[in-house]
Structure formats: C-alpha cells, structure tokens
C-alpha cells in the first residue's frame, strides 16, 4: 500500500467514527487562571482515549496547544504555566494510563506491537488518536484558529502534516526518525525494542516497511506551520530538516533549564503570550 493510501485510509476510518467527547471538570486542578477538565473521546477501533484539557478564564479566544503523547505509560499533566496561557490539550493515547480500558500498553513492547504488518501496527491507531485530538482542539470555540500549535515528537509532525490548522509546530524529540539505523547506536530503550523484536525472529524488511509509514521525513513536506526542531545532532537530522518547509533549528545545550526556557519562549512569541519559566528564580 502506498504511503498516501495508508494514511487516507486512517482518515476515512476516523471520519466514519463520531468522537462523542465527554468533558468532566476537575475542581482540584481548576484555579482562578483556568478551568481544567478530563476529556474522553472516541478514536478508531473504536477506542475511547483520554485527554487533559485546560481553558484559561477570561475573554478568549486563546491560543491553542496540542501536546502529543510521549513514548511511555504516563504523560505529564499540563503545567500551570501553560494552563494560564493556552487552551492546552494533552493526549493519552490508547494503552497509556487513563486510556487503558481494554488495552494496557507494555513497556518495553509498545514500539513493536504488531509491527510486522503496517495495517495492524499499534501506532496506526495511536496516530489516529492524535489526529482525533487535533480535530477536537481545532473545533473548540475558545481556540483562536490563527494561533494553534502542536508540540511533541514525531507524532507532532505527523499530526501537523495531516491536519491543516496548526500554525506552529515544536518538535522536541524523535522516535521514528531513521529508527532502523538509530537502533544500532546503543542498547537503550525504546529503540532497543526493535533489536529485541528482531532477535525474536522478525525480519528487518518487515520492520523497515512498517516504520517507513511513520518516519517524520515522509510527513514533513505536508507541514504548513512554522516549525522548530530541537536537535542534538543537526547532521543526523539533515534529511528531516531538508524535508520540512523552512524549519528553524534549536541546538540543544543539555542545560535543560536553558533549553526549557528557550523552547517555551519560542512558542510563546509565536502564540502572542508571555514567556514563562517553570523555575521561578
């Protein structure tokens, strides 16, 4: 199946399934600054996934921010700094905690779950979860449609590529990018899962074929928003950078206080809100 046909089929499946979102306010996380709610919404499968949604108090519309899920069982709750500035939605994809009714992802294991067949690969559904979250956020009346950002790893690139409406894309990590090469660099997880899977008898060609549908370099040309890619090794990322339309590059310093502040300020400036450091000096 071609790349375009593969993803068109995902879009068609999503379009056929109503999201039917349910929001429940969380008093403990609701403050004078923002109202915090949990969100449950249907994605492909059908499967109910979970999100944390916070909407600033006061007169909107406000800039929107979608936080795509990281690789791991838990995603952090949006920080109060972000809750005060953005309509922020952080997604728990299928299998992560709070979205694990019926399917609890294994760690290690998620990255290679059903990876031998692109049609059944778990990340096909996870990508759909991100797209569903994007549709939900973009549809909120409190969100200023001219100022909507997505942040995260490769899933942020994929989401921005497949859902027009994101004016800003901040990429802070990479999972699928050149994964079949990156797996050879160390025995560190999650990419070590690919080596584990191959030891179990799978073929490199099967893995390569499936993972190629998720490589951000293939999605990048469709991204229309201004994009920042935080990189440790710009040379390694060259093929992704060349595929993105006019990306900005941030060379991480590994002084994470400095890096966090830069990444916050970059997004804030493009969203028309003040920069804020999580560390209050």
């Amino acid at each position: 199946m071609t790349f375009d046909a593969y993803w068109a089929a995902v879009d068609e499946e999503l379009a056929a399934i109503p999201g039917r979102p349910v929001l429940d306010v969380v008093p403990a996380r609701t403050t004078d600054e923002a109202t915090f709610s949990t969100v449950r919404i249907t994605s492909t499968g059908p499967y109910r996934v979970y999100g944390n949604l916070s909407i600033p108090k006061g007169d909107g519309p406000f800039p929107g921010l979608l936080v795509t899920p990281r690789y791991g069982s838990v995603n952090n709750i949006p920080h109060p700094n972000d809750r005060s500035r953005y309509v922020v939605l952080s997604l728990m994809h299928r299998g992560q905690r709070l979205a694990d009714e019926g399917f609890a992802a294994a760690y290690p294991g998620l990255l290679t779950m059903h990876v031998d067949d692109p049609q059944t690969y778990v990340y096909r559904g996870i990508a759909a979860d991100c797209l569903r979250a994007a549709e939900f956020l973009l549809g909120l009346t409190e969100v200023d449609p001219a100022r909507v950002a997505v942040t995260g790893d490769d899933l942020a690139v994929l989401t921005a590529a497949r859902r027009p409406g994101f004016s800003t894309v901040r990429v802070t990590d990479l999972l699928f990018y050149r994964a079949m090469e990156a797996r050879l660099k160390s025995c560190m997880y999650p990419l070590e899962e690919l080596n584990d899977h191959l030891r179990g008898g799978s073929s490199t060609s099967a893995l390569s074929t499936t993972l190629s549908y998720f490589d951000p370099s293939r999605h990048a040309p469709a991204v229309t928003g201004r994009t920042l890619l935080a990189v440790d090794d710009a040379e390694w990322c060259e093929s992704l950078l060349s595929a993105l339309p006019d990306p900005e590059v941030y060379q991480v310093t590994h002084l994470d206080g400095t890096d966090n502040d830069f990444l916050d300020a970059w997004l804030a400036e493009r969203s028309g809100v003040p920069a804020m450091s999580k560390f209050v000096a």
Partner: peptide
C-alpha cells in the same frame, strides 16, 4: 515517578 523501569542492559554491560 512517571517512568517504567527499562531493562538495564547498559549497567550489565
């Protein structure tokens, strides 16, 4: 707090 323990191959090595 939020992480699952990874298989500690790097320390065994």
């Amino acid at each position: 707090y939020i992480s699952e323990p990874t298989v500690p191959k790097e320390w065994a090595e």
